[in-house]
């Protein structure tokens, strides 16, 4: 059971890292989305995997009657989903604005602050 699951995580990470190493920001963006999924699944492994026992206390009990899934990683992942969503939205708009202002979505060509052939400042007093 564990093996295919961790294989999936590994593949998510590999694909995400490959996309993020691209110089085109749109691909970096797609990589970020995929990375968010990978990280969430990785966090999920911390609670181990149990089938069909959600951490919900049944009616008439004060504590869970049977063994249930670990709620803590789930709560953390819920937060992580929200944060990675906001991060993604921000990044998307940033890429969009950068494209409009600089006319490129190639990270290596965004050289407003450091023009390509800008000479170094003098190296001595």
């Amino acid at each position: 059971m564990e093996f295919p699951f961790v294989l999936l995580i590994g593949l998510f990470f590999a694909a995400a890292v490959y996309l993020m190493l691209s110089k085109f920001l749109v691909r970096v963006l797609l990589g970020v989305v995929l990375l968010g999924n990978g990280v969430n699944l990785l966090l999920f492994t911390n609670g181990r995997i149990l089938r069909e026992v959600p951490p919900i206390i049944p009616q008439g009990h004060d504590v869970p009657a049977t063994l249930t899934a670990n709620p803590l990683p789930q709560a953390l992942i819920l937060t992580a989903i929200v944060i990675s969503f906001s991060f993604f939205a921000f990044l998307l708009v940033l890429v969009y604005r950068a494209y409009q202002d600089l006319g490129t979505d190639n990270g290596n060509e965004m050289r407003l602050a450091e023009p390509e052939d800008d000479p170094l400042p003098p190296t001595g007093y």
Binding site: E52, A69, I77, L78, I81, L92
Partner: peptide, 28 residues
């Protein structure tokens, strides 16, 4: 794997993310 809350949230976030990307790609 026993995380229905995550599933719901993941699903709706996935929808919004896709829409955002579609809107964004139109201009990229």
């Amino acid at each position: 794997l026993s995380a229905p809350d995550l599933a719901i949230t993941q699903l709706v976030v996935e929808i919004v993310t896709t829409v955002l990307l579609l809107l964004g790609l139109r201009w990229l």
